[in-house]
Amino acid sequence: MIWEVFRQEKAGGYHAHCGNVHAPDREMARQFAAIQHGRRKPTNSLWVVPREEIGEIGADEVAFGGTTDKIYRWATAYNTTAGDASEVVESEDEQATAERRRGDDR
């Protein structure tokens, strides 16, 4: 049986998928997960879940958020002129830099 393992690095942090283990039962899966995934990096806790218990909800089933265009929130969406407040110009430059960085990360 395959068990998926999620690791939390610090208390209060998110659990992130770190791999899986093959084990015949829950107790062995917990022990294998602790050995394979809990001792190499700082670990606060592990979640060990049977693979068949993990469900997926796809975009074809549900409309997830983030599909609405909210460009009005960014200063780059507005036309600025030399007479505008310096804060607006600085914000526009920061947003343009952030967008370039996001593009580089992909």
Score class of each variant (00 low, 15 high):
Asp84Ser: 07
Trp3His: 02
Thr43Trp: 02
Ala59Asp: 12
Glu94Met: 07
Val88Thr: 11
Ala63Asp: 10
Ala34Tyr: 05
Lys41Gln: 13
Val62Asp: 02
Ser86Gly: 04
Asp104Asn: 09
Leu46Val: 08
Gly83Arg: 10
Arg30Ser: 06
Tyr72Ile: 11
Ala96Leu: 09
Ala33Ile: 03
Gly103Gln: 12
Ala11Thr: 07
His15Trp: 12
Arg73Cys: 10
Tyr14Trp: 11
Gly66Trp: 03
Pro42Phe: 06
Pro50Met: 02
Asp60Lys: 15
Ile35Thr: 14
Thr43Gln: 03
Asn20His: 15
Ala85Pro: 00
Asp105Phe: 11
Lys70Tyr: 08
Val48Cys: 03
Glu56Asn: 13
Ile35Glu: 12
Glu94Ile: 07
Ala77Asp: 05
Pro42Tyr: 06
Asp60Glu: 14
Pro50Lys: 08
Asn20Met: 14
Glu92Val: 11
Pro24Ile: 06
Asn44Ala: 14
Val88Cys: 05
Gly103Tyr: 08
Val62His: 09
Val88Arg: 10
Ala11Leu: 07
Trp74Gly: 06
Ala34Trp: 07
Ala23Lys: 02
Arg7Ile: 01
Pro50Arg: 12
Glu56Val: 15
Glu99Thr: 13
Gly83Glu: 07
Asn44Leu: 08
Gly38Ile: 00
Gln8Trp: 02
Ala77His: 11
Tyr78Val: 08
Gln31Met: 12
Val88Met: 09
Phe6Glu: 02
Lys41Gly: 03
Ala75Trp: 03
Gly103Ile: 08
His15Met: 07
Val49Ile: 15
Ser45Trp: 02
Val62Phe: 12
Glu4Trp: 08
His15Glu: 06
His22Val: 15
Gln36Pro: 00
Asn79Tyr: 05
Ser45Arg: 10
